[in-house]
Simulated assay, not measured.
Amino acid sequence: MTATKTAGPTEGSTDEPFVHPALFYRGEEEYLDGTVPFIREGLKVGHPVAVAVPGPNLTLLRDSLGGDAASVHFLDMTDAGRNPGRIIPRVLRAFADAHTQTHVRIIGEPIWAGRSSVEYPACVQHEALINPAFEGRDLTILCPYDAERLDEDVLTDAYATHPVTISGGSRSTSPSFAPGQIVDRYNRPLPEAPATAEPQHFGVDELPVVRRFAVARGAELGLSGVRLDDLALAVAELTTNSVVHGGGFGSLRIWAGDSQVVCEVRDRGQLNDPLAGRRPAARDQRGGRGLLLVHTVADLVRIHTGAEGTAIRFYLGGC
């Protein structure tokens, strides 16, 4: 591993247009030292800059930037990135694709101390998938990690998902960068559904029945209004995918989680593209939007795929 002192995450990285460093910080001072110069250097040379971090850090950066904050696109990651599966298409690609004529700088902090163990596998897979999603793009995505509050396993994974790390002002090449291994490692079987969530089996003829069942059950569990509409949309997309791409049939379960409704669709198909559902759909694209729509409306999506088939589980709050 080589380490050098650096004034900013992009210094010495001109060989590759896409740069994806992890910033390990301890306390507010290190956080600001690693992010504010990155933002101001970008603004100085005319780079569009976006910041998508959790609310407290968002406020901290806004206040520290002063008048420069007006030139930065801010997003609260606890909202925009609540579901890690929508960060690439709805946050990172949305900003980068709007500025294709110049280098773009983004600070994205998708993993914070409040993330649950249920969310984390989707978070770390997202970090790994940033690399193939943006390979060759003229873009820097800086990802801060709170080294004081996050578990050691999370920091270890950050070395595997980022080719470069920054800590204490020193920039290093990661000795364990292996994003593909992370995607595979966290492709784990999902925890068992409650025994009370009996599977509703369906083929093409049962699609209307199973969709009505899901909406009725969602309403019983406390969903209403837009959230019930989101459930109906997600179930329609996933059950259609099962019939078209998953062997012609599947099963659906739905149950109450912690202040959430949880819905799972299983079929015999295999999801061989880890970036499926994470690419924005082209304007002239016909079909292929189902999983993207599920990621858009859900608070979390967990996926396991293997030789026996695929399970997609999504979570909706608001109940």
Rank of each mutant, 00 (worst) to 15 (best):
R137C: 12
D138N: 15
D138L: 11
L139R: 00
T140R: 00
I141H: 05
I141D: 00
I141K: 01
I141S: 01
L142M: 13
C143S: 13
C143F: 03
C143R: 01
C143G: 10
P144D: 04
Y145C: 01
Y145L: 08
D146N: 12
E148V: 06
D151S: 13
D151P: 12
E152P: 01
E152Y: 08
V154H: 06
L155C: 02
T156F: 08
T156I: 08
D157N: 11
Y159W: 11
T161P: 02
V164S: 04
V164Q: 07
T165N: 04
I166N: 02
S167G: 04
S167D: 13
S167T: 14
S167F: 10
G168V: 06
G168N: 02
S170F: 14
S170Q: 13
R171W: 07
S172I: 08
S172V: 08
T173N: 11
P175I: 05
P175V: 07
P175H: 05
P175D: 03
P175K: 06
S176P: 01
F177E: 04
A178F: 05
A178K: 12
A178P: 08
G180C: 05
Q181M: 15
Q181G: 15
I182V: 15
I182D: 03
I182W: 08
I182S: 08
V183P: 02
D184P: 09
D184N: 13
D184H: 14
R185T: 11
Y186G: 04
N187E: 05
